[in-house]
Amino acid sequence: MSSAATNVLAKQFKELSTNPVPGFTVALHDDNIFEWDVGIIGAPATIYEGGYFKATMKFPKDYPFNPPTFKFNNSFFHPNVYADGNLCISILHPPVDDPTSGETAEERWNPTQTVESILISIVSLLADPNCSSPANVDAGVMYRKNKEQYDNIVRAQVESSKKDIPPGFKIPTNAAEFIPNKPKPEIDPDDDFWLDDEDMEEEMDDDMASDDSSEEEYDG
């Protein structure tokens, strides 16, 4: 299914490159469509204002049927971020019921999610963490019981992150700059990067047929 995943990712990357969405930046890592360099921008009027946090998204070969992973590249103190930088958020969990966390498949990943919707959810999570089942217990406890200390740690992170702001990049200073109210421009439907749902199904059918053919030839 990797060829179908390549086309879906290329389409989504094209959309974000053509119409950048304030709140994050994206770029391919070493021209690898399955690994993206991400910059998360701290939202104005939050403790993350002015910050620029580098992260990496890695996509499976069967995307969008399974979710990518998201990992901050530097230390990031947050209830929903593990010590190694990996993010814990429901929409990036495999789409199965999990009795341990209490999450149902409906709360988790589904193929209708896009990179844009994932990143918007992550930006929202920064200022509104889920402390009910924290990945970082210390951060979760501090957020609930000593918010001032928590905020001070985050502000120090923000200052440290400013060294990673790309040259010439303008950090939004108000809500209008962060999420402008403007329609997305139309993109040429004939663009080779685009792949509609019917084409994606045909692409996957071709891949699966190719795999079956290979197995038959091997068994023979």
Rank of each mutant, 00 (worst) to 15 (best):
D97V: 10
N32W: 11
N86M: 08
T104F: 06
L16A: 10
I33M: 15
G85P: 06
F77Q: 09
F53E: 01
M142G: 07
E203L: 04
E217W: 13
G102V: 02
N86W: 07
P134G: 05
D97S: 05
V154C: 08
V115P: 09
D97K: 13
P167D: 15
S90Y: 01
D128H: 11
F178Q: 03
I89P: 01
S210P: 01
E15F: 06
Y143A: 04
E202W: 09
K58F: 00
V26E: 02
W194F: 15
D212N: 10
G42H: 01
K61R: 13
I165D: 06
A10R: 14
Y143P: 04
T46N: 05
T25A: 08
V141F: 03
Y48G: 03
F77L: 08
P185L: 13
L9I: 09
I179D: 03
L28R: 11
A156F: 09
E15I: 14
S117I: 01
S90R: 09
A105P: 02
P172L: 08
G51V: 07
P79N: 03
I153K: 10
P68C: 05
I120T: 09
L195R: 03
K58M: 15
S101V: 04
K162L: 06
S132P: 01
D37Y: 07
K14I: 01
